[in-house]
């Protein structure tokens, strides 16, 4: 059943096994091509599997998905494809959030605007408590080292 498939999909996602989750997501979509949860899961799987071009294509051409405000996912695809100015434009539509700032910092770093990246990371490091504090400190250090 779809419920059983979603149970497995959720578990595989928690374990980071997106290559195993994707076929199950596609099975759900065969039963119901308009299932929004499955469509969103498909995008996540594609992004985790480094298929940013396909993810972006799906997000912008699928009738249901293109209606959704998936700013962060769309901007992330553009960032990975090195379309950095477009990625910033996409994020300007998003509600401000630490997630948006984190991607902005990465974009500015890639643009070699290290001052701006460092400035965003300083604020994030001060205000964010999650599993990525060490990685964020490393990114801040990288931005500071490159800006000096």
């Amino acid at each position: 059943t779809v419920e059983q498939l979603f149970t497995q999909i959720r578990k595989l996602g928690q374990d980071g096994l997106h290559h195993k989750a994707l076929p199950l997501v596609i099975e759900v979509l065969k039963k119901n091509p308009k299932d929004l949860d499955a469509l969103k899961c498909k995008i996540v799987c594609l992004l985790k599997l480094d298929k940013c071009k396909e993810a972006y294509h799906t997000m912008t051409t699928d009738k249901e998905l293109s209606k959704l405000p998936m700013w962060h996912e769309r901007a992330y695809c553009l960032y990975r494809q090195n379309k950095l100015e477009e990625a910033i434009t996409e994020l300007n539509n998003a509600e401000p959030s630490p997630k948006v700032d984190e991607l902005l910092a990465q974009i500015y770093y890639k643009l070699e605007n290290y001052e701006e990246a460092a400035s965003i990371y300083k604020t994030l490091v001060k205000n964010t408590m999650d599993s990525y504090t060490n990685e964020r400190e490393t990114n801040l250090a990288a931005a500071l080292a490159s800006s000096s």
Partner: peptide
């Protein structure tokens, strides 16, 4: 080149499937 992590990829996650399972 200094180490730099793609933290944003970690922020991309499945929607809450709690109602679907």
């Amino acid at each position: 080149k200094p180490t730099f992590f793609d933290i944003s990829l970690n922020h991309i996650e499945f929607p809450d499937l709690g109602e679907r399972v």
